[in-house]
């Protein structure tokens, strides 16, 4: 079999500069994380951009962040870009061991938000993007439910019925004081 054509890839993952690495031109990002980086927390679900179990966070230079579905986005799309994955959220000590979960992860556990956990990485990243948006631009409390629905509504979960994910996300936002009166 002919060797796959490759090209050089450099990017930042969870604050760490990666590369340059030679990566096949047509490799999907989820396979790059799994096979090249040993970061297996992003889940391959539908493989066609529907379920959003694979979602990671793309950080922009202007301080905004957005969700990316990496089962349908090639690794080279991220050349020169910065992303965060589920492995990057918790606080770690010098040895790399987890010391504390971030507030979203912790609230998801406190609220029994997930069961089988397959969709959880995508939900954590989606909720993180929402919380960061509200940190830049807080929302009236009356609009919160709609904002949560908009942020998490496309993510598919087959166990919980979503209510506990929504409640946990609301709790994080309220505790951080990101919903104003009104």
């Amino acid at each position: 079999m002919a060797e796959l054509p490759t090209r050089s890839l450099s990017l930042t993952i969870n604050g760490e500069a990666i590369g340059p690495v030679d990566v096949p031109e047509d490799l999907m990002m989820i396979d790059f994380l799994h096979e090249y980086q040993g970061l297996t927390g992003s889940r391959l679900g539908c493989g066609q951009g529907i379920c959003r179990a694979c979602v990671v966070i793309l950080d922009h230079d202007d301080g905004t962040s957005e969700e990316m579905r990496i089962c349908i986005t090639g690794a080279h799309f991220f050349n020169g870009k910065r992303i965060r994955t589920i492995e990057g959220h918790a606080e770690r000590d010098a040895a790399g061991d987890i010391v504390a979960l971030n507030p979203i992860q912790q609230k998801f556990i406190d609220h029994f938000a997930f069961q089988c956990s397959y969709c959880a990485p995508g939900f954590v990243n989606a909720a993180t993007v929402l919380v960061e948006r509200l940190q830049r631009d807080p929302l009236a409390a009356g609009e919160l439910e709609g904002a949560i629905e908009q942020a998490l509504g496309e993510h598919i979960c087959r166990c919980t019925g979503y209510v506990r994910y929504y409640q946990a996300t609301r709790a994080v936002i309220e505790e951080l004081g990101l919903a104003k009166e009104g």
Binding site: R7, E25, D26, M28, Q48, G49, C71, I72, T73, G74, H76, F77
Partner: peptide, 23 residues
């Protein structure tokens, strides 16, 4: 454009442009 196709289109439309049924 080839690399752009692989990065943003091929996940659904197929690397060789073969498409995916129902997708």
């Amino acid at each position: 454009g080839r690399q752009g196709y692989l990065d943003t289109c091929a996940g659904c439309h197929g690397i060789e442009g073969q498409g995916k049924p129902q997708v």
